[in-house]
Amino acid sequence: MRNFKTFIQDFGWPRIIIFFFLVALFIMAPFVGVRLDASFSDVLNRFGQNAIMVLAMVPMIQSGCGLNFGLALGLVAGLLGATLSLQLELHGMLGFLGAIVLATPFSIIFGWFYAKLLNKVKGEEMTIAMYVGFSFIMFMCIMWLILPYNNPTMVWGYAGKGLRTTISVENYWLKILNNFLAIKIGQFFVFPTGLLLFVALFAFLMWLFLRSKTGTAMTAVGSNPDFARASGVDVDKMRTISVIISTFLGAVGIIVYEQSFGFIQLYTAPSPMVFPAVAAILIGGASINKASMVNVLVGTILFQGLLTMTPSVINSLLQTDMSEVIRIIVSNGMILYALTRKIKVSK
């Protein structure tokens, strides 16, 4: 009983409420004419689409840099990789992997500078990360207009230069992961094997990394930087590594998202993708200085489940679209909850 109580306390009421809300939605779904199998399929798909971006939160949380509101930098690196891959006319799996490879140097460079900055402003990381992300996106907006891309599927037809706001990847690597070994059951249920395997691979690599010497040091830096320093760990270096990894995962995450979604979205599209990733990991039970693979898994499923189920179920139920409002309140409420939660560091 006591264990149960502390479990609830650690897990936090908001998450439990969200969990039961989601369960209730699934139970109600058949009664309002929403197909469960289609819903499950949808949730799985969206989970795969978003999980790597949520995973990108882990290293920075673990190393004590807080929630990565600057994930946009990684997303932009991914967009650069994706557009370059299209520019080079890489198709199929080659195109997809090419995009990741091309995005890697960008994500390392961006991440390195971003980490330099964050190490200078310890304690104020989150607000600054947010604005660095915004201004970088705006800077890239200008770049998208003037970079010399010329693949006709990507540039504005009438001007002949400047990238389109949305670029279809249909002829390149649309659903390359989703369709890999996909299992179709019935008319509505598709199990996106490739996508989930890919996510699992990254989660496993992250798991391995967190158990390595560097990963251990990083966790200690986040848990108690003074302890880590006293044990001979270079705190700034660990933080830098974590930021670079996070940025890289952001880049991979957006490419995975695009292959499933079907479009590369440029210009200001990356900014609204950051908050859901932050909210998801918090819903999964992470705090602003501790996160695990379980948090990523649970959080992404809960949050994406909510995003999938509320429009269909609530709308059929109330005949009105409340899902947006619920989405806003839940995701921001969750971040707010994490920020204002008294951290139980018994110093």
Partner: peptide
Amino acid sequence: AGETTFQSLGSMIP
């Protein structure tokens, strides 16, 4: 439009 509200609340769209 329902779809855009989350984005717009991010106040990031130009």
